[in-house]
């Protein structure tokens, strides 16, 4: 067991964890942050994407011990009073149906917009390549990212 210290959505946690524990399972099973779902076991789908020290990571590909000392933001920590512009954009543009990929898609979109505040359609499609959606055909997700960019993007 390893002792770790992680800040998740603004709250500090200290825990003993097994070395093999994945960050996503730490978030879901230990902290009850079940807003971040698991969609695969091969790091392909991106459903579990969170932000770690300002970078988007697939939390199934990070060990909890690797996140020691870091600051994690999940979809549950985005809204501070008001929704994050990307959350609003997803609703406004009907960029989700079942919503299972949505937390990861939103976190990846925020990352994309921070790197490129006014991406082209092609840049959005390639920027979100690591996140799979089975419902929308991606068109409205692209639209949502463009909408959020027009509203001031990632902030």
């Amino acid at each position: 067991m390893v002792r770790i210290q992680i800040t998740v959505d603004g709250q500090r946690h200290e825990d003993e964890v097994e070395g093999r524990l994945l960050l996503v399972h730490y978030l879901r099973d230990r902290l009850g942050k079940v807003g971040t779902p698991v969609g695969c076991d091969t790091s392909n789908c991106g459903s579990c994407t969170v932000r770690m020290d300002g970078q988007s990571v697939k939390s199934c590909s990070v060990l909890a011990v690797q996140a020691d000392g870091s600051e994690i933001t999940t979809v549950e920590g985005l809204a501070t009073g008001e929704w994050h512009p990307v959350q609003t954009a997803f609703k406004e543009c009907h960029a989700l149906q079942c919503g299972y990929c949505t937390p990861g898609m939103i976190m990846a979109s925020i990352d994309l917009l921070e790197e490129n505040p006014s991406p082209s359609e092609d840049e959005i499609r390639h920027g979100l390549e690591g996140n799979l959606c089975r419902c929308t055909g991606y068109q409205n997700i692209v639209k949502a990212v463009q909408y959020a960019a027009a509203q001031g993007g990632a902030q």
Binding site: T36, V38, L78, Q87, F90, K91, H94, L96, G99
Partner: peptide, 21 residues
């Protein structure tokens, strides 16, 4: 009309079966 479902889905206030405790 924008969807009623979305508020919980975009904020992570979801309850998937695997999240049931």
């Amino acid at each position: 009309l924008r969807r009623k479902e979305d508020a919980r889905l975009v904020t992570g206030r979801t309850r998937w079966t695997d999240s049931v405790a």
